[in-house]
Design a binder for these strands. Sequence first.
DNA 1: CGTTATGTTCGATG
DNA 2: GCATCGAACATAAC
Length: 270
Amino acid sequence: MPELPDVELFRQILEKHGLGKKIVGVDVSDARILGKLTSRDFTHRLVGKKLVEARRHGKHLLAKIESDGWLTLHFGMTGGLEAFAGQEAAPPYSRVSLDFVSGGHLAYTNRRMIGRVGLTPDADAFIAEEKLGPDALGGEFTLARLQKAAAVSRRDVKSFLMAQEIVAGIGNIYADEILFQTRLHPNTLTSAMTPQQLEALYRAIGTVLKAAIKAGAGAEQFGERAPKGFLLPERKKGGHCPRCRTTLALLKSGGRTGYFCPRCQTETRT
DNA sequence: CGTTATGTTCGATG
DNA sequence: GCATCGAACATAAC
């Protein structure tokens, strides 16, 4: 479930359960998640250290290791981060877990193994290497920046929103929600959008993501808690527009399925 | 059994 | 160069 709001909640979990406590053990139950890094090297770099800072950029979570670089976490489509107590068993699909001196643990879970856990010397350099644009909720993502990017891009607005090098943190689900709130058709070309539309888009990015974090995100369970007027709970086959009750339309692109209201979100292409 | 899935990357193609 | 499409990755859940 990890798009920006989900990863932000993981960041809060990490902050609450993983900072300032000495790591006394590391359990790598599936080393594939580490890529080329060996579990031995990974473990040796963490044991005996503390995590001292939790930072998020887009869909990436970074934890500063006491005087030794950063731990990096990316969640793919099915990843997560969970804290669990001493005697409890690790959660399902746990791939890496950290054991703290307090007896608590933190587990990185990932059913489909699409995702990465790694180490990097420097957080800013890592963000640059990953070619990540400004975080969607960060101060560097200004309206002016969005306007400039939209003017030169030849993409449609949905793939624009999901392009991490343009703005980091938005995926398929929240792109649909943001476009719904802005009443924009997913295929609208950003270069053809009016200043008013771009401003509305910019505002919706902030309000949607913040509302999702506040509501506790977590796409599946999110249904009940979704803010009023959100598309999300209806975002399924046969779902209805929260505004006009029209049956939602589906649109496939790049192997992804998008949902939108064919009546409220009108085509503005060409 | 077939389809689909919250992400990203790579190669082919337009 | 740029954009889009499908496939691939790995593993369920429906």
